[in-house]
Structure formats: C-alpha cells, structure tokens
C-alpha cells in the first residue's frame, strides 16, 4: 500500500508546490481574465467600431471609414458640443455644491451628540435608494401641476416653476436631485477623514489664539486634503457617468429638447435608439478620453498633496 500511494502523494505535492509558488498569478488570474474578456476586449472593439460606419442591425456588414466619424462628431455643434457642455455643467455644479454642503454637514456631525445614530441613518438613506426610484419620486414632487414643490412656493407667494419640464430649468433641477442623493456620500467620506485627524494641531492652534474659521482653513482643510481629493475623485467619476437619474426624469435623449442630454445619455441614444453604433462608439471614445484626463489630473493632484 505504501508503494502505490507514494507516487500519487508526490504528484499532489508537486501540484501543491506549483500552486503555492505561482499563487500570485493563480489568485489574480480569474479576475484579470474576466476583466480582460468583458472590458478590455469590448473597449478595443469600441475603438474599432468608431472607425467604421456600423449601424442598423448588429449583424449588418460595416465598412472601415477611418476618422470620418471623428470629424463628424467633433464638428457637430447641434448635439455633441452641447452634450459636452451639459456633462461639465452637471458634474461641476453638482460636485461643487456637494463638496461645500458635504463639508458643512460633516463638520456639524464631527463632535459626538445625542441622537447621532439616527442622524447618520437619515443621511445614509438617500445614498442607498435606487436612483431610478429617486428620479420618479422627484418627478412627482416637481410636477408643475400637482407637485409639492410648487405648492410650497405658493405659500411664499412665489409663482409656480416648470422645474423638470422647463427647457431652462430642467438641468438645474436634475443637478439639485443629484445633490440630494449624493451629498451623503461626501459627508460619509469626509466624516471618516475628520474622525481620523489627530487633535493636537487643532489644539495647538487654539492655544495660539486662532479662531474657528482660521483653524478650519489653516489646519483642518490642509490635513484633510487627501480625503477631500478622494471624495472629489469618487464623486466626479460617478457624476460624469450619471445615466439612470437623467433617463428616469427626462426619458430618451434627455427630454424632447435634449435639455439634460449629457455625453453618456447621448451615446446611449445613438446606440440603442438610432442604432448608429459607429458614431456612438466615437462619442464614447472621446468621452472615455475626457474621463481619463480628469482622473489623471486629480490623481496627480492627490500625489502632490501627499508629498
């Protein structure tokens, strides 16, 4: 019996040794393969499609047309450039208000108080709520005829606003909704940063006679900078890509006048409403480059701060 089991055992041992020695890649390989197949390959394909006139059915033949799509998109002042502008307005405005408001709320919650737990739960709820449901909820509240928003304005004698259905007010309204839903995320991240700060620098500044605002500006903010940049990074990634909220509130193409059509919504419409895959791939590649550039700038900034 010993004779028979011996080679088998060493085969298992050899296998086990091999696995242990190669565990670095063995562990990482499945996830890497998944990412490669479902992300890198599709991205490469998008890049290829952007150089073709693929449209209509997914089975239709397509022809290589070089950079024609890129010239078409980049000279399109009707849909493309307004969409770029809206993407930046949406992201910039939402991000700015979220950071300022988020910092204020985080500072309010910083020191312990009674009922802290309940306030934190209240802040968590908008964040986990399904964005599509949130969009529907605000659609009812902002409805020009039956919504609570205009009802509340009427109490103060302010005339009714069109909100989401107004050509000029729709973008501002969706920015407001985004702020409502995602400020809590900023609060949670900044609060974690604040709680991990050591007391000494703040204490020392207090003794030197610095007032609350000076301490905040010269002590808290510089110390919090890495955390602030992480919050900006995470929020801007998601804000740039916002889709569900815009689709839920305004439907296809960002409304009948494309009031809230951002790059993401525009690319989606080109693909799945017009089946113009070549053109939409071009928009996506440009969009992707914009995102990468934004991330690159932010991570650069983060590294500078850490030095």
């Amino acid at each position: 019996m010993t004779v028979a089991s011996l080679p088998q055992k060493s085969a298992w041992k050899a296998y086990s040794d091999w696995a242990n020695n190669h565990r670095k890649w063995l562990f990482a390989a499945p996830a890497m393969a998944f990412v490669a197949i479902l992300i890198i390959f599709p991205l490469a394909w998008t890049l290829y499609l952007s150089l073709t006139d693929a449209s209509g059915s997914v089975r239709a033949e397509s022809e290589f047309i070089g950079f024609a799509n890129y010239t078409e998109v980049l000279t399109d002042t009707d849909r493309f450039w307004p969409a770029v502008a809206r993407t930046f307005i949406f992201t910039g405005a939402a991000l700015l208000v979220q950071m300022v408001l988020g910092m204020c709320i985080a500072l309010l919650l910083w020191r312990p108080f009674k009922g802290e737990k309940w306030v934190r739960v209240a802040i968590l709820l908008p964040l986990v709520a399904t964005p599509v449901a949130v969009g529907m909820m605000w659609r009812l509240i902002f409805d020009p005829n039956i919504g609570f928003a205009n009802q509340a304005l009427a109490w103060f004698g302010i005339p009714a606003q069109p909100w989401l259905s107004g050509q000029d007010t729709a973008l501002a309204t969706v920015i407001f909704i985004d702020i409502w839903q995602w400020t809590p995320m900023v609060v949670i991240i900044l609060l974690a940063g604040l709680t991990s700060l050591s007391e000494e620098p703040d204490e020392a500044a207090r003794i030197d006679g610095a007032n609350a605002w000076q301490r905040f500006k010269f002590i808290t903010v510089p110390l919090m900078m890495p955390t602030i940049i992480v919050a900006i990074l995470l929020r801007s990634i998601d804000a740039l890509k916002t889709f569900d909220l815009l689709y839920a509130t305004k439907g296809r193409g960002g409304g009948s006048f494309n009031e809230v059509e951002t790059l993401n919504v525009y690319a989606y419409g080109l693909s799945f409403d017009y089946n113009d895959y070549g053109l939409s791939s071009t928009v996506l590649i440009i969009f992707f480059l914009i995102i990468i550039a934004a991330m690159w700038v932010l991570t650069r900034r983060r590294k500078d701060v850490q030095k």
Binding site: A28, I39, L43, V58, N264, I285, I292
Partner: peptide
C-alpha cells in the same frame, strides 16, 4: 493589475454595452 480591475469603475457602462450587445 489592480488599476486594470479598477478601470471597470471608471469606464462609462455604455461603452461596454455596445460590444456586449453585439
């Protein structure tokens, strides 16, 4: 390698949907 996986968080979903749908 981690950056490659985290790319998935950065990429707009639509850019994957078209090839997937294909």
């Amino acid at each position: 390698s981690a950056l490659v996986v985290l790319m998935a968080r950065i990429i707009p979903g639509v850019s994957l949907l078209v090839p997937w749908y294909y």
